[in-house]
Nucleic acid binder design. Structure first.
Lengths: 229, 229
DNA sequence: ATTATAATTTAGGCAAATCTAAAAATTTGT
DNA sequence: ACAAATTTTTAGATTTGCCTAAATTATAAT
């Protein structure tokens, strides 16, 4: 068993690398490329190599030169701890401090590095143990466990499918503000009425109101299909 | 007027130095000594000198070699901003997350460096604009204004004086736990019954209950004298 | 299969924030 | 007032985390 010896010894930067490697590792199942990390973190590949070596020393990642990198069990647990904190803080900001969902990310990026088990567990309790963050992403529990919700991209479902909007794939402020402007929010009932062959845009009915959205938009919205359809 | 150009460009370490210089500057009205800063921050005088030069470059402190250091108007405003954040977070931890008053300091030391005006102003609102933190220290408002509450050390008041316990001078966990163990808390009515000549210890009546406390304890408790006594 | 291209790593350097050891300035004691 | 003690600063080194430029390895193309 791991005793998280280094849990409180990690620097901010190390934590950010672990988080990034976790996110990139989700997509493909294979090793994460140095360049991919560098691009996402807006840093240089050489800096990434430096850091990977340090993380490797600490047994947070598996690393062989030129072969990419992957999280160890300890690294994975660490990542889930950071993501838990990030998402709980996001819920706090929206629920308790009236932030909008496009404002939370930046502040949560700072708050996720605060080190105190008691703090985060108390926050969890204050928020009544939420299962999802404001963008519909699942919040790991204190042991790092979480289940991906059963959901599909709106762009992937057939005509006449309806469901509840439960999440966004792109959670950039730009996209979220666009959704606000167009009255699209989590919890809305969405039904696909028609798909335009020409450009893939969709005619949808959202909470009774008809509108047209581009394929790009649809491919960034998750819905949970209604039962029995 | 200052436009706080550097407000969001300050490092954690710089902020900690500014805070320390502020606290040391309160006591005596004169310049703060390098050694005093080093001792309080548990660092070496040479490190302090280095940092002071950097702070001086940024116009946060007045500095002349060998002459000690003092905050500029900008430095003072910066310090008050950090203290505001620290104390608001302490209130949050106690009021919303059920921390005890001896547990808040460590976590608040981390939270005080989070950079977001919206965050701290919303927090202020959530907490209903508290005027004092859990140790009875005043919380600066968003412009840095605050008034020291009218209060006296219990050790300084004459026999038969009574008042409400409104603060502690030493807010170390050790002292606070001692107070908890002995049932002394902010809000208690305290009256000085007798002062022992030999060692300066005090017989007091606290919320109706009689007890004896040492001079050291009394010199770390603030009371607000009852009106009309 | 060999070359061209792309990805990754190494080498060497820089800034922040710290340290130790030594030098310089100030303060104190008599 | 002058030597001794104390305080403060300088000089030079270290660690983290980043950079650029050059070298190395892997991958893709013909």
């Amino acid at each position: 068993m791991y005793f998280c010896v280094n849990k409180y010894l990690m620097t901010r930067s190390e934590e950010n690398y672990i988080k990034t490697i976790f996110h990139l590792g989700r997509k493909g199942t294979q090793e994460v490329a140095t360049n991919a990390i560098a691009e996402l973190m807006e840093t240089k590949p050489s800096s990434v190599t430096d850091m990977i070596k340090r993380l490797s020393e600490k047994d947070l990642v598996n690393y062989k030169r030129y072969q990419g990198v992957s999280l160890t069990a300890l690294g994975n647990k660490t990542a889930l701890g950071i993501i838990r904190k990030h998402r709980l803080w996001e819920v706090f900001l929206v629920e308790k401090l009236d932030f909008s969902w496009d404002e939370v990310h930046e502040v949560a990026e700072q708050l996720e590095h605060i080190k105190s088990d008691k703090l985060i567990d108390s926050l969890d309790r204050l928020l009544a143990y939420p299962k999802f963050d404001p963008h519909g992403d699942p919040i790991p529990d204190k042991n790092g466990g979480f289940k991906e919700r059963d959901r599909e991209l709106l762009s992937e479902v057939p005509i006449n499918t309806g469901g509840v909007c439960v999440g966004v794939k792109d959670s950039s402020a730009t996209f979220l503000k666009f959704l606000d402007k167009n009255g699209i929010a989590l919890g809305n009932q969405i039904k696909v009425m028609e798909i335009e062959e020409f450009d893939g845009s969709l005619n949808i009915e959202i909470d009774g109101r008809k509108m047209q959205i581009s394929h790009v938009i649809a491919s960034n919205l998750y819905i949970k299909a209604n039962d029995g359809i």
